[in-house]
Amino acid sequence: MRVHFDFSAIRKIRWYEYAVRFLFGGAITAATGLVAAHFGPVVGGLFLAFPAIFPASVTLVAKHELEKKQKVGKDGTTRGKKAAALDARGAAMGTFGLGFFAIVIWKLLPVWNSMAVFSFAILTWLIVAILIWYAEQHRPV
């Protein structure tokens, strides 16, 4: 399937769903700082890859699929779970990009300009994640 943007999805999200993500995202970022301050950078760094908003996102995905099916008089429970599993599958592939992002930060931050390292790390994350997703899509069955 071709990758595309569907901006109508924004209208389907309720204000409190945005608020939940903001709160979870803010809370885990603040908590990561506290953990690092208390236990040091080695333990604190683990939480930079904590699936902070994943439960909120995946639950919303399942809920929206369920509502879509219920509108046409069908039980969307299975469809909701399948959509959530697809999201989780994408996340599993994305973790490879996340790992490479971390390697770039670890190896290059001490020797390069910070902005250059961040830009290169984001680019690395994006390229690795997309390549793995593409390879998975074109994997011979």
Partner: peptide, 8 residues
């Protein structure tokens, strides 16, 4: 950078 190592 040390946090980055743990992030892996």
């Amino acid at each position: 950078a040390r946090e980055g190592r743990s992030m892996i």
